[in-house]
Simulated assay, not measured.
Amino acid sequence: MNLDIERDVDYRVPALQRGLMVLEMFSSQQRQLSSHDIAERLGLSVSAIYRILHTLLEMGYLNKISKNTFELGPQVMCNGFSYLASRDIVEIAMPHLNNLRDRTSMTCHLSIREQTDSLYIYRAFAAQRLSVNIPIGSRLPCHCTAMGRVLLCDLSELELDNLYRHVRLDDYPPPAPKTLPELIKILVSDRETGWVLHRSDYSTAIACAINDHTGKVVAAINLSGPEAILDNPETQLICREHLLKTAKVISREFGGVNR
């Protein structure tokens, strides 16, 4: 391949470039901008940037605070710091999840939410024949898993409606909820319980939340194992107590509080 020729090819996507330029216009000194300000800085008309602003609004990267005035939306913070936060939480949670695995002989996982997915960022693997093995980096739909439901518990009905507005839920097998109202009803029960139990493919998982200093759910942990073992009420109770104690310790070390 001729690298000199390759450099001459412009692979930039103008609309994406302009969208990122819009986000870069905001700062601690410039918290709000009008559509006219944004268009002027880009050297375009307001009508030419309408679709860019609409897309950023829809995705949560901008908030509209008046008819033609905008500020940065929560998705900027969510995506900008989720990786850094996940590194911190992994370092804190790792020894405690390893200890939880050793005490229960169950595989333990740690995950964070990215949109409607539960992203697995750590695994303490239990070396037994029927261990549950979900690799780090795996993404599973939140509404289908114990940890995912925990990660959704903090969201209001409005937030859930916005999050799942264009997401189909009926493509997944039972016991996953088929509709948003059904999911919301399940999450109400999950909040009251303070933990989630989920069965699938001959395995069972129990999950609970890791909270930050405001009480917000920032991550979830679980322990999972063969259905034949965790279906035993006494074993399930012991494992759940160990899990909840571990979550309290991790939350406290993360600077958080447990509800």
Rank of each mutant, 00 (worst) to 15 (best):
D190A: 14
S47D: 13
F26Q: 00
G255I: 02
T179E: 10
P141V: 04
M94V: 08
E114Y: 08
M106G: 06
S45M: 07
G80F: 11
A176P: 00
L62R: 00
G194K: 05
Y122R: 05
N98T: 08
M106Y: 07
Y122W: 06
L169E: 05
N162G: 12
K245M: 10
Y172C: 10
G60W: 00
Q115S: 13
S251W: 00
S66R: 10
R7G: 07
P174M: 09
R12C: 11
I65V: 15
N133H: 12
L151E: 00
P141A: 11
V46H: 07
W195G: 03
M1W: 08
M106N: 09
K245H: 15
L23M: 08
T145M: 04
S35R: 03
K245L: 10
V22Y: 00
N258F: 05
V217C: 13
V13Q: 12
K178D: 03
G19C: 13
D4S: 13
A126W: 00
E114R: 12
L180K: 08
F254A: 02
D37Q: 12
F70I: 02
S156H: 05
V249D: 06
A205I: 00
V150K: 01
R7Q: 12
V22P: 00
P181F: 10
N258Y: 14
R31H: 05
E71P: 03
V22K: 00
G137V: 04
G148T: 05
K248A: 15
F26D: 03
V22H: 03
R139L: 12
S35I: 09
S138V: 04
F81N: 06
I250S: 01
P95H: 04
P173G: 09
A48C: 10
Q29S: 15
L62T: 00
L237V: 08
L163G: 05
S66K: 11
A219R: 01
E40C: 09
S189D: 15
I186T: 09
D117G: 06
N211R: 15
T204W: 01
S66P: 02
N2Y: 07
L152G: 01
L187W: 02
E253V: 05
H166Q: 11
